[in-house]
Nucleic acid binder design. Structure first.
Lengths: 350, 350
DNA sequence: TTCGACCGTTAAACGATTTAAACAATCGAT
DNA sequence: ATCGATTGTTTAAATCGTTTAACGGTCGAA
């Protein structure tokens, strides 16, 4: 049951542990007879030898373990792909991930950092469940990177979504389809995502000549489907000329679908709707499917870990940078050119 | 930057490392003067000493690290709570989780086990992303438990949902509301969940006197919202007398909502619908909210880790057992008594 | 003296890596 | 023939930072 140790291998092969170690680590450069080498390798095989990573790490002062401080990523269903991307990148370079879930408080950060330091993690990836600014305590791991977040003082390498370019893809779709009366269902919080997406909206409005864009924006505190419903009803009531709605996220878009149904507007014939996030549970389930933009979660996780490994192996001496990654446009069928004359718009009910 | 070692602490406190270790580990039983002890503790404080877990583990032959072999749990948005439950339970007893994501193939299992063994994990929790039977290779960790899965040979402690009792909660709701004509939107695969839920359905049908239950079952290969839509349309077309639909999961239920809307049936007045899973992205977003059952993901994760720790610390000599955990009923508003006369049922369109 | 408490230290692990040195064989030079 | 140098192969020993069994002084009491 107990695993074979290097000593046992060396005894079986009738060499010293040093020889066994040198042979098996491959770093021997033909210092040994081919005969000794194979004898060692066969002994190792026979015993099913695998190095004890604790011992190896203790001696070599590197664990090949990366800490993943997950700020609610595990908890929420939104960003699991980020962890998967991180795992993939880590495994590809023979690193493992020690994942610790925390809430975003400074104490939680401090505790998480200590915990990972106790385990001698070679580096730490802090992953957030949404694009936010993070206040990283001054006592921090030597090597760290951020995913879906950036440091308030910009002192850490960070990988975030390119909000502007990402949403511009769906805005272009709307614009190129010929819509002129476009509404926006937004979020009234002050997040990077909010700012980036609204900036893109305004630029698109200018570019395509959308009328009175500022008057066609509705914002809510929360972004549940019912908020989307309310905003959509409000927008369409105030301005029945709207032929397209852009939602800050898919949940809001889902509410807009319900509003459209209630107002007797067919999607996409009477009303085009686009979302953001590509929450498949929603975007694939709606009829028609929701045209939206997938956040680059997998990429952020992957790139962040790759960068982290570069830092750890000090192949990288560049100053910290923030990389904004564009998400993938997913076209599903909720966008069509505006119809010349709308079928109906009965605002009477509810 | 480099962390203080026990040796440094002992030098500052002017004692031997053994003394420092003994004092700090608390296992000294008054072998030392209170004065020496505080001197050590102050030195440790001053240097911010924290034990190197590699060294500690190497010496003590226990890592306080549990391996979490995640069979696609990370990847899918369904079962994140299981990992959270596991984390909570582990942290509560001062264990950490080394998470490795795998697909369910035997080779992946073997690799995962080896990897975790390399890290000298004290025990392994295998967590599945849905309730399934798992074929665990014969070479396996000394201590292991399963969550949301059970071993084909029942040789491992397992924590699974109680499918029968869980769905019975919504079935009772339907039955007690007075429905007699109930349809079931199912899955045609052979999973434990399918079997358990259908068994409960049949028993409920008997108990409440539901008519011709076997004729009112529709099953699909997949369980997307469109499958639910198709099944619901088929059921309601075949038997317009149905006043309630029970769905195998929330996605299917979501499709049933759409079918109802299309057929002009109001929920819950004309048609009651219940789901299963409580995928909040769906169940909270639908109007009315979907009455459903939440799977006990958090509990499975928590209990599995607690059991695992018992095994590791060998406080538990019982033979392997399988524990079935009931999920929580979440009532939202998609259930009402059957109406005496239905408003309409226009089967003409689509 | 001798025996227990009492307080503390020595030293051997744990399982690898890695440096420096030992050992052996070969070879030209004296 | 003998020696020193050279090259090629292998190993002893230190090291990483802990834990812990075993041991050793000191001192007051019997």
């Amino acid at each position: 049951m107990a695993r074979a140790t290097l000593k046992e291998v060396s005894e079986l092969a009738e060499v010293s542990v040093a020889t066994a170690s040198l042979v098996l680590s491959g770093k021997s450069g033909n210092r040994f007879t081919e005969e000794t080498a194979t004898r060692v390798r066969e002994a190792a095989d026979q015993l099913g030898y695998r190095a004890n990573r604790l011992a190896r790490s203790l001696r070599s002062q590197q664990t090949r373990v990366l800490g993943l401080l997950s700020v609610e990523v595990l908890t929420t269903p939104y960003a699991g792909d980020m962890i998967r991307g991180a795992q993939l990148a880590a495994r590809a370079r023979d690193y493992d991930l020690l994942i610790v879930e925390i809430n975003g408080t400074p104490e939680a950060f401090a505790e998480g950092f200590e915990l990972l330091a106790d385990h001698q993690a070679d580096g730490v990836l802090v992953a957030s469940f949404f694009h936010q600014e993070l206040l990283i305590p001054k006592t921090r791991p030597r090597h760290m990177v951020l995913a879906d977040a950036y440091a308030a003082d910009h002192s850490v390498d960070a990988f975030v979504p390119n909000e502007y370019d990402s949403i511009t893809q769906v805005l272009n779709l709307i614009g190129e389809a010929g819509h002129k009366h476009v509404g926006y269902i937004g979020d009234c919080n002050d997040y990077p995502a909010v700012r980036g997406r609204e900036a893109a909206l305004r630029d698109a409005a200018l570019r395509f000549g959308w009328t009175n864009i500022e008057d066609n924006i509705a914002r809510s505190e929360d972004t549940n489907s019912s908020d989307g419903y309310n905003s959509a009803i409000a927008l369409l009531t105030k301005n029945p000329a709207l032929t397209a709605l852009v939602a800050y996220n898919d949940r809001l878009a889902m509410g807009a679908f319900r509003a459209a149904a209630e107002l007797g507007l067919a999607i996409p014939e009477d009303l085009s709707i686009v979302g953001f996030d590509d929450q498949r549970l929603i975007s694939e389930a709606l009829r028609p499917g929701l045209t939206t933009v997938a956040l680059p979660h997998l990429e952020m996780g992957r790139l962040a870990v790759e960068k982290l490994i570069q830092l750890v192996e000090s192949e990288d001496e560049n100053p910290p940078a923030e990389v904004a990654i564009i998400g993938d446009l997913v076209e599903r069928g909720s966008v069509a050119p505006p119809s010349a004359h709308r079928t109906s718009l009965n605002l009477g009910q509810s």
